[in-house]
């Protein structure tokens, strides 16, 4: 009996070593690997304009997409985009499906414990919205016991509801549009999202309105696996570079601070 157990532990130990080694092997080669294969593989989500969406011509577009494209161009490699659900992004990164996540992801304490994040590329403002028939005017008005507040599953908006609207119940949805639809249909009383998305929803739905005030301002950064140290520093440097030459500002003005993109993509 003892012999078998010893055998089993030895086998498991060996398996752990094999896993460990293959990871270590990948560590010092990720940047070389990208250059060698001539492809930068980027994981994105399709959560809606203006960060990442599919435009009227069926092409992938958005702020995160443009930054990723610029990165690939400057490295002289081809950009390969892989699309996942929000909750699939991190598991897919950990499973090695692509090199980095380019999405509106906040480097929270928990996420940073498992992943390496670049310096923030841009900031988003978390705001609340509700239906026009409701009497609320600011986001603080939503903090009433018994109200149901919608947010995207596993995102920082859920955390924000729990923290800033502690009296309410949070309802987690699979995607941004389902939140907006649920609100418009009267299934929930209010919802949290970022300013860019909420402006879009308010345009689409006659009965949705933005509430006054910014709940949080969150840094958004790109993520990679924790062993890809070189890639992380490369991304940090890249933020520095495109900030200095104002390329980033131009993109932010086009996608984020104005609605200039709507003329080309909507």
């Amino acid at each position: 009996m003892k012999r078998y157990l010893r055998l089993l532990t030895a086998a498991l130990g060996l398996a752990a070593m094999v896993v460990g080694q293959s990871v270590a092997h990948a560590a010092d080669t990720i940047m070389d690997e990208i250059l060698q294969r001539g492809e930068l593989r980027v994981g994105v989500q399709t959560q809606g304009a203006p960060v990442s969406f599919v435009n009227k011509d069926g092409e992938r577009a958005g702020l995160a997409i443009d930054i990723a494209r610029m990165m690939a161009d400057d490295l002289g490699v081809k950009l390969v985009l892989q699309d996942y659900d929000w909750k699939g992004l991190i598991p897919a990164l950990l499973a090695g499906k692509f090199d980095l996540i380019a999405a509106d992801m906040t480097p929270t304490a928990e996420r940073t414990a498992a992943l390496l994040f670049s310096r923030p590329f841009f900031y988003q403002e978390t705001v609340a919205f509700t239906t026009t028939d409701k009497p609320y005017t600011t986001w603080q008005d939503l903090n009433v016991a018994g109200l149901n507040i919608g947010a995207v599953q596993g995102g920082t908006y859920v955390t924000a509801v729990k923290e800033f609207l502690p009296e309410t119940n949070v309802k987690e949805f699979a995607s941004g549009p389902t939140v907006a639809q649920a609100l418009s249909a009267g299934r929930i009383d209010g919802a949290l999202s970022d300013l860019g998305n909420v402006r879009g929803y308010a345009q689409e739905y006659d009965n949705l309105k933005l509430l006054d005030g910014v709940i949080t301002r969150e840094p958004l950064a790109f993520a990679t696996r924790k062993e890809n140290v070189h890639l992380k520093f490369w991304m940090d440097n890249y933020v520095e570079l495109i900030s200095a030459n104002h390329k980033l500002d131009r993109l932010l003005d086009y996608w984020w601070n104005t609605t200039a993109w709507q003329a080309d993509h909507k």
Binding site: T46, V54, P177, T178, Q181, E204, Y205
Partner: peptide, 13 residues
Amino acid sequence: GEISILRFPADIL
């Protein structure tokens, strides 16, 4: 379908 809904959120159904 879901990608199309992102373009026309109000027409989800």
